[in-house]
Each structure stands twice: as C-alpha cells, then as structure tokens.
Amino acid sequence: MVLQIISNGILMGFIYALVAVGLTLTWGVMDITNFAHGEMLMVGMYTAFWMFELFSIDPLLSIPISTLVVFLLGVLLYKLVIKRVLGGSGLTALLATFGLSMFLKNLAQFLFSPNYRYINGAIVTDKKIVLGNVILGLPQVVAAVGSIIMTLIIIYFINKTKTGKAIQATALNRDTALLMGIDTDKIFAITFGVSGACVGAAGALMSSFFPIYPQSGGLYSIIAFVIVAMGGLGNIKGALYAGLIIGLTEALGGFFLGTQFKYALVFLIYLIVIQVRPKGLFGW
C-alpha cells in the first residue's frame, strides 16, 4: 500500500517538476514572478481538449501542437507586456503578470464557459499497468514519462545548445551578456516561449486525467512557486528534485493525515527545507 502511494507521488512529482521547470526559467533568468504561469498551463490543457473535440486528435499526439501554441503565446506575451515591465521593480512586473493571469482566466471563461470538461476515450483512458502489488494508471505513467522526456530536452537545450548558453549568460548578468553580443531581448523572448512550451506539454499530458476549466491552473501555479523556491530560483535540477519531494509529500501526507491536510503539509515542507537551505536546495 505504501509502495503504491509512493509511486503515485513520484509520478505526480515529475509532472509538477515540468510545470516548475517552466516557471524557474522565467523567474531565474528574467527575475519575473510569473503569476500567469498556471493560466498558460490552462491554455495548454484547453488546446489539447479542443484538438480532441474538434479534430479527434488524441492528447498524446497533440503534445507538439499545444507545446507550440503555448510557446507562441509565451513569445507574444513577452513582446506585448513583459518586455515593457522588465526594467522596473519586481512588483511592477508582478502587477503585469497578475493582470495577464486575470485576463487569460476570464477570457477562457468567456469563450468556453466555466464548466468542467473531460477528455473521454483518449488512447490512455482507463488503462492500467499492474506491477506486483502496485497498480499504476496509464495516463499518469504516460504523463510522468512525457514530463521526464520534456525536462531532459529542456536540460539539454539549456546546457548544450548555443541559445541555451546565451540564456545562462543572460541569467548571470544581463548587461555583460549584452556587451558580449547576445541579443538579450531575443533571449528573453525565447526564454518566455520555452517556459510556455514546458506548460504546454504538461497541459496536454495532464488533460487526459484532470478536469479542464478556466481556474484549473491556479493550484498548480501556487505549487510551482513553492517548488521553484524550494529548488532554488532558476535552477532546473533543483526544480526537478523539489518537484519530486512535493509530489511525494502530497501523496504520503494525503494518505497518513487525510486529503484535506495534504497541501498544508506541502507548504510546511517548504518552510522546513528553507530553514536548512535559505536559498533553496540547489541555490547559492
């Protein structure tokens, strides 16, 4: 039984990690606390939903589509809004992203009504994997595997490609990066887009087993904030490990203390970890 809980927690942890990786990129590189992150996730979920409803494209196959859609949304939001608030204080940027979050949430409500929607009859729906005593839902397994792959792609992109190195350089020092001939404006646009791509993929992966509604992103964005701060701002590896810790805490806390306390425990774990490592697990 405990093994079952732990495996569920780990599966959920990988999905949280992917959402948090997206957030840690914008937070660490651009110093923007993106309150619209959860809403970008919601856009990813809706994209997968409408692809399935209108064109019968399975959520698994629409992952590239929703990734691309939210990537473009990220670039667009950067060009229209974020670019203008970059120079100001952190709280001004917060004001802008909060406005964005409100706008996107209510645009979804305006266009699609506040009803809960589900994807029924996707390839993975209601299938299970049985490993001894442990029964794993196929949607969760696929989502976790997909999240791992996407996270690895992001890690590869940041560490190995030229653009990724430029992003790292910009994160370290914006002005020096500019002096070295890096087009920081373009880098920021790409970073915001990649951050969107993460939640786009996560949205499509989650859409087969989570309800889709305008407020669906809210809880994940709060949890992602905690994960990012726990792992250390801008640290992808930190976000991955912290995501796993949060996933496990949620599953074990829900089992031993009752589901109503599981999120309280998640936030408590953050407060404890941050006492030992005041700048997050991998922060410096």
Binding site: V81, M102, F103, K105, N106
Partner: peptide, 23 residues
C-alpha cells in the same frame, strides 16, 4: 452575465498601468 468579461477588462487595465505607469 457571469461571462467573466468584467474581470477581463479589469485585467487589461491592470496590465496597462503596469506597462505605462510603473511607479
């Protein structure tokens, strides 16, 4: 109407203030 259009407009106004009157 419960369509959320009021909060949409509100969100846009908040964005505008943040962009053009950051202080």
């Amino acid at each position: 109407t419960g369509s959320g259009i009021d909060l949409m407009i509100f969100g846009v106004l908040v964005i505008l203030v943040a962009c053009f009157q950051p202080k």
